[in-house]
Design a protein around this nucleic acid. Structure first.
Length: 480
RNA sequence: UCCCCGAUAGCUCAGUCGGUAGAGCAAGUGACUGUUAAUCACUGGGUCGUAGGUUCAAGUCCUACUCGGGGAGCCA
């Protein structure tokens, strides 16, 4: 179909009173689409002749009479006026219900609405400087879909324990909704980032026959007549796939059964693990800073309103949208800790206080590389300049949010890797397939893992990791 | 596994020296044509986490347990 013919077809199909090309609006919201080769059938919801419009897109419909479908977030009444705060997941808009401007029966219904009642509202979109979102709705019809029972979460202060017990309902509130939208943006930024750089999305298994790194406590499950574990990392499988496809990433859930009871831990979280053949440690570090800065940039570009709802100090986030990120060695970091008087024993891993002290020196995340091999995983390659060091790198987020990336160049020599497996008392048989990767065309390679929820907690500036996933799984907590 | 803190109305909390249970908000009713967590008036609302102990008397003191929160270790 020629471009002109496509335009004509679009014009013919476009409903009255809306712009001729709905795809143009989608393109502007979701990023550029290529040449439009066909016009998809879009699901449209009509009520009494009015087309449903999401609250986020109301500013594009000023002057039009539209349908909004959603839930009552809050209501205030003033005499013969009702102010309905209606939410639909994309935003909140105020509907002004004035007696005389709609059927009396609808006015009466509006007056008796309870919080979180579901409803359809038809009204005229009008720009109003007093409205927080810039527009409000002059209501012409109110149709109750379901009258809500008293809603447990009043627009008031609540404790985190109570809110988490009602997580299925709390998701409807402003802050959780904003975080879910930022999460969606970050996930799409991640997929776009890797696609643009020719990394293929592959999936690693969730059931695994053995502990990947042999260290963490894992969830045990019955696997027919055997035992299996829920994966703690897709990395080893990622390495195998990278030897097949060159550059890949694994994006999936990860499970840890450790009894960590802090705001920085979940038992189920999402991890993104790129792995690339022919990458050395420097390549891994460049990739990591490029990656994290891209996620930050995308959220700043497309989800600024949500960051405002979250009261995020954007000035503190903006430097992280630019590369390069500072890089220091473990030894330099250790020296700096001593300089600052932070308690620390050389050779140890960093705990939360050490991470915070290191990151406080910079306005963006910092990469700490070349760690003592003794405290790092068996698969990390030794530094040829100093075999006591592993070619590993951690990225520590700013403002005390801690480690968000852990990565390394992998050991690609069969003999050395076998020695490491033996030294760590790992089951050699279970690792034969992994060792095969060093038998058949072994190459230098590396990658890292990024914890999605920790990254989101930092970007959103929220205190608790559990707020960054719709239904968090934590120590002893699995409801709702 | 260890350390610290907490549990009183639907929610957030106060409750003095041990002496018969309080507030704000929410809910219900009513008033008000520009409210932004509206305001005002009235109304209803309690097995003080559970079990035991001390005492004439326990929300309050003691012990154990349960649940929740924070942290250490471990990790992303």
């Amino acid at each position: 179909m020629s471009r002109a013919a496509a335009a004509a077809a679009r014009a013919a199909l476009a409903p009255r009173g809306v712009p001729a090309c709905p795809l143009a609006r989608i393109a502007s919201t979701f990023g550029a689409v290529g040449r439009v080769r066909h016009i998809p059938a879009m699901s449209e919801q009509i009520f009494e002749g009015h087309k449903a419009v999401s609250i986020a897109r109301l500013p594009q419909h000023v002057g039009q009479e539209v349908l909004v479908q959603g839930w009552l977030y809050n209501m205030r009444s003033k005499g013969k006026l009702h102010f309905l705060q209606v939410r639909d997941g994309t935003g909140i808009v105020q509907g002004v219900v004035a007696k005389g401007e709609l059927p009396d029966a609808d006015f009466e219904v509006a007056g008796t609405l309870t919080q979180e009642s579901s409803l359809r509202v038809v009204g005229v979109v009008r720009a109003d400087a007093r409205a927080p979102g810039g527009v409000e709705l002059g209501v012409r019809r109110v149709a109750l879909v379901h009258r809500s029972e008293p809603f447990p979460i009043a627009p008031k202060e609540h404790g985190t324990g109570f809110l988490m017990e009602n997580r299925h309902l709390w998701l409807r509130s402003r802050k959780p909704s904003a975080i879910l939208r930022v999460r969606d943006e970050a996930i799409r930024a991640i997929r776009d980032f890797f696609h643009e750089r020719e990394f293929l999305c592959v999936d690693a298994p969730i059931f695994t026959p053995n502990a990947c790194e042999g260290t963490s406590t894992l969830f045990q499950v019955k696997y027919f007549d055997d035992l299996a574990y829920l994966t703690q990392s897709g990395q080893l499988y990622g390495e195998a796939t990278a030897m097949a496809m060159g550059k890949i990433y694994v994006f999936g859930p990860t499970f840890r059964a450790e009894k960590s009871k802090t705001r920085r831990h979940l038992t189920e979280f999402w991890m993104i693990e790129p792995e690339a053949a022919f990458y050395d440690l420097d390549d891994v570090m460049v990739l990591a800073e490029d990656f994290v800065s891209t996620i930050v940039r995308r959220v700043l570009e497309n989800r600024r309103e949500d960051l405002k709802i979250l009261e995020r100090d954007i000035a503190k986030l903006e430097p992280a949208a630019n590369t390069p990120y500072p890089r220091i060695t473990y030894r330099q970091a250790a020296a700096r800790l001593h300089e600052k008087g932070v308690p620390f024993t050389d050779g140890d891993d960093f705990g939360a206080p050490q991470e915070t002290a290191i990151s406080d020196d910079y306005d963006r995340p910092v990469l700490v590389h070349r760690w003592p091999a003794a405290i790092k995983a068996f698969y990390m390659k030794r530094d040829p300049q100093d075999p006591s060091l592993a070619l590993g790198v951690d990225m520590i987020a700013s403002e005390g949010y801690g480690e968000i990336v852990g990565g390394s160049q992998r050991e690609d020599d069969l003999k050395l890797l076998q020695e490491r497996v033996a030294h760590e008392n790992l089951p050699m048989d279970a690792f034969q397939w992994y060792l095969d990767l060093r038998r058949f065309g072994s190459v230098p390679h590396g990658g890292f893992g990024l914890g999605l929820e920790r990254t989101l907690a930092w970007i959103c500036g929220v205190e608790h990791l559990r707020e960054c996933i719709p239904f968090p799984r934590m120590l002893y907590k699995i409801y709702p």
